[in-house]
């Protein structure tokens, strides 16, 4: 088996907008995401960051190329094969995507009830264990509408971790959170990854924070990808669009971080 958790080989994806415009989001891109590491996918709005995540999950079909997850070609499987493959993933959505009509407990228990044959007592033990780990004890009877943004993200993370995923996908995980909560959430991600050893793929605009976690960075720009082995490598890039990206998104914060 390859060391890459996810591989993109000459993958292309374009969309036709409602006005008939064709927008090429990914143009023959190649990259590999190393297993057990944290990869950050960055880039401006509409550059295809979330599309990349959906392609990995098989929620969207690539127009061309192959996408391999643990050696399995996502572009060639359908139905139950794809369902089985998805059990390897945990996903934390931008808005957490909690089920509004279910309590925190039921949201977290859902993957276990649906995808395992565990008894209700065993499920209760696992759910409570995760809720305690994520500091959500005492909130299990609440509904998503009664939670703060940060708590919703933690419940989303608790739900995503229930099936012990090999790969965790984070789609803009700190959007809408204040800086203190953002810092706490990223600390929590780092702690959980250290404990569980999953491969993390983080799509984020929150560059200064997320780069502290990154072991590999992919920057999307006009359908192409630039891959950097570490965040520090980015500042040495001679490409104008990367320099522009560094100036706009990291600016003084990143520079001061480097000086430290």
């Amino acid at each position: 088996m390859s060391d890459a958790a996810v591989e993109f080989c000459r993958v292309s994806k374009a969309f036709v907008a409602r006005d008939g415009q064709v927008q090429v989001v990914l143009d023959q891109v190649n990259f590999a995401i190393p297993a057990g590491k944290t990869t950050v996918i960055a880039g401006g709005s509409g550059q295809g960051k979330s599309v990349t995540l959906k392609l990995i999950l098989g929620l969207l079909q690539a127009d061309d190329g192959r996408i391999k997850v643990g050696g399995v070609d996502v572009t060639r499987i359908r139905g139950t094969g794809l369902e089985e493959l998805r059990t390897r993933f945990g996903v934390l959505f931008q808005g957490a995507a909690l089920f509004d009509s279910m309590s925190v407990y039921d949201n977290v228990a859902l993957p276990l009830r649906e995808r395992t044959k565990n008894s209700e007592a065993a499920i209760a033990e696992l759910v409570m264990d995760t809720l305690v780990k994520l500091d959500l004890e005492g909130h299990e009877e609440k509904f998503p509408a009664q939670l703060s943004g940060g708590m919703r993200k933690r419940v989303g993370l608790a739900r995503a971790l229930q099936l012990e995923p090999e790969i965790m996908l984070f789609d803009e995980p700190t959007t809408g959170l204040d800086p203190v909560m953002t810092h706490e959430i990223y600390e929590l991600f780092a702690k959980m990854q250290e404990k569980l050893g999953y491969t993390a793929i983080i799509v984020s605009h929150d560059i200064p924070h997320v780069f502290n976690l990154a072991e590999q960075v992919i920057i999307l720009n006009n359908g192409k990808m630039d891959i950097f082995a570490s965040p520090d490598e980015i500042q040495w890039s001679k490409q104008p669009h990367i320099q522009e990206f560094v100036r706009k998104t990291m600016g003084e914060i990143y520079q001061s971080h480097l000086v430290e």
Partner: peptide, 22 residues
């Protein structure tokens, strides 16, 4: 419709839960 736009149906698919059956 609300479940679709708030990504709850995507979340079901990501958890390998068939949204039609569910």
């Amino acid at each position: 419709g609300i479940m679709r736009i708030s990504e709850q149906i995507d979340a079901l698919e990501c958890m390998a839960i068939d949204p039609f059956r569910f």
